[in-house]
Amino acid sequence: MKRALYAGLVFGLVPLQTTMLTYVSIGGIRPDLCLVATCLVGFLAGEVEGMMLGLALGFVQDLFSASDLWLNLVTKAMIGLFAGVAARHLASATPAAILGTILAVSALSGMVFLGTVRGAGGLAEMGVALVSVVVPQALFDALVGAGTYWLIAGRTRLHPTTQVGTVPFAG
């Protein structure tokens, strides 16, 4: 079941991201569903699964982006790892905690992209990209992620892989 879910995410999210998500974009900014999914899986199923899913999603995302073939692959894997580690150190998992975690990882990921993609454009261009892409996308991702967590956790009683808690999602 879980494998089917991961396969569905790997093969379904990027097509969704490149096509239908244009309709929900705000000011040309779309939420990064791959980042949100990676973060949630890392949070709920642990850093290993988060990282593996991040690798797969990042790779597929790179195939359908003008970016270099490593950029999303590496950043998404790091995000899955970071989310899993963060979940272990959280006392309680709430949509607010998810919101904060995704906000942080999306902003960090955005800074990596900013330096890599727009680094050559100078400070002015980086400033424009920071305000017009990094910040709105981090907010968008955090809201979508927290909303999704609230929906799935409320219905399936999923809990993150905390140090003292159980790991039902990974079972």
Binding site: T18, Q61, S67
Partner: peptide
Amino acid sequence: VIGRDSTNWYRAMV
């Protein structure tokens, strides 16, 4: 054209 760039960082289309 079947899609747009999968990230917000490039103006690209598929």
